[in-house]
């Protein structure tokens, strides 16, 4: 019985790991700041799914739901602050490309 329930968790886990790979790949490969946030969102989705599956597989679904509700609130606030910071960076540099921003910074240093 116990292992029967747990099979749910193990059948979901490969997909969750692949979601994590997608998010991490996006964060490390992209040069666009907003795209980094997209990767972060994918990561958070994977984590949310993991919590729900862990709760469902062991029958602690109420606790898992409480965790997910709190989690979503936190996620929204952090993403909003991050988006605000991105907009602030754009106002200073007129660019969201990390390479271009680095270039601007290097020129700024050589000017001094």
């Amino acid at each position: 019985m116990n292992s029967e329930i747990a099979r749910l968790f193990w059948s979901f886990s490969p997909f969750i790991i692949m979601l994590f790979i997608i998010g991490l790949y996006c964060i490390f490969v992209t040069f666009n700041l907003i795209r980094v946030l997209v990767g972060v969102e994918v990561l958070m989705k994977a984590a949310t799914l993991l919590v729900i599956v862990a709760g469902a597989a062991t029958g602690h679904i109420a606790l898992a739901q409480v965790i997910v509700v709190t989690l979503i609130v936190i996620e929204v606030v952090v993403i909003t602050i991050a988006a605000g910071v991105v907009i602030g960076i754009w106002r200073h540099n007129n660019s969201l490309d990390t390479r271009k921003i680095r270039q601007i910074n290097d020129e700024g240093i050589s000017d001094e």
Partner: peptide
């Protein structure tokens, strides 16, 4: 987990795209 699902739908599918 219907409660968390509703929350996810309203906040993550509704609010976060607006932020983006």
């Amino acid at each position: 987990s219907p409660l968390a699902a509703v929350f996810e739908l309203s906040v993550c599918a509704g609010l976060i795209p607006v932020v983006f």
